[in-house]
């Protein structure tokens, strides 16, 4: 198996989960209502757990450093997350749209990975897809609710969707290893995933009465997978490292 190709896949998934997990956790205590507070902090805890399990595979299978070192001691350039997950939480409607777009991609990605030839990844995928179903269900419920709320809430959802879409498409930025991963049966590839995702997301968005934004290829925000990030990642990583610096035994 091609080690570099697999590590690249694992890193981008782990980094996505870690960063979105930390962003979601920022809603703790400030959510629009108590139930949403709990939802975002539970989802954050799930995501950070998933990232840790992925770093664990990188550590045990490929002999890289310990999971918490991989999470907190790599530089910004070494991070492979997409820029969508880096963006600040913004208003609630943006966070919700991001959660909707990201989690559908994640649900489908794990679904594809349940048949991966990389056994520990297939095992994790079978486990995680059950957890992510709850995340997706949550996103869908609130998307429908807010899109069918007042004129204002509908307009805000649409605006957030328009803003987030070029970033969301960046989730599927291809790596240099697509053919290798597909060939070795590790992962079905970003192109296939994007296709499945577009179909799924378009259906839900349209049913909710919103417009699916059309994005030119040139406007898609790529770069994250290759270590080029938005201005927001650096400060987020610093904050995360700060917590471990203060208390090296800080629980996840």
């Amino acid at each position: 198996m091609n080690t570099e190709a697999i590590k690249d896949l694992l890193y981008k998934m782990a980094d996505d989960a870690l960063v979105i997990g930390h962003r979601n956790s920022e809603w703790t205590g400030i959510g629009p209502m108590l139930e949403e507070d709990l939802a975002f902090s539970s989802m954050a805890q799930d995501k950070v757990g998933h990232s840790q399990a992925l770093y664990q595979i990188i550590h045990t299978v490929f002999g890289e450093r310990e999971p918490d070192v991989l999470a907190f001691q790599r530089s910004e350039k070494e991070f492979k997350c997409c820029q969508l997950v880096e963006l600040p939480i913004g208003e609630y409607d943006f966070s919700l749209i991001r959660h909707f777009l990201f989690d559908h991609a994640e649900a489908l990605r794990y679904e594809m990975l349940t048949t991966s030839t990389l056994m520990p990844l297939a095992q994790l995928a079978k486990k995680v897809r059950g957890e992510i179903k709850y995340h997706v269900m949550h996103a869908d419920t609130f998307l429908k609710q807010l899109a069918n709320g007042s004129e204002e809430s509908k307009a805000r959802m649409q605006a957030s969707l328009n803003y987030a879409m070029p970033y969301a498409l960046g989730i599927f930025e291809k790596s240099a290893f697509e053919d290798t991963l597909i060939g070795e049966g590790v992962f079905g590839g970003e192109e296939k995933l994007q296709h499945l995702w577009l179909e799924k997301v378009t259906g839900i968005v349209t049913t909710a009465g919103l417009q699916m934004p059309q994005v030119d290829e040139a406007k898609i925000i790529y770069g994250g997978r290759k270590g080029f990030h938005s201005e927001y990642l650096k400060s987020l990583l610093d904050e995360m490292t700060e917590v471990t610096r203060i208390d090296p035994s800080a629980e996840w």
Partner: peptide, 13 residues
């Protein structure tokens, strides 16, 4: 179902 997320990861409200 009020919320799929409760006081711990395994509980719904």
């Amino acid at each position: 179902l009020r919320s799929a997320f409760g006081s711990t990861l395994c509980r719904a409200i």
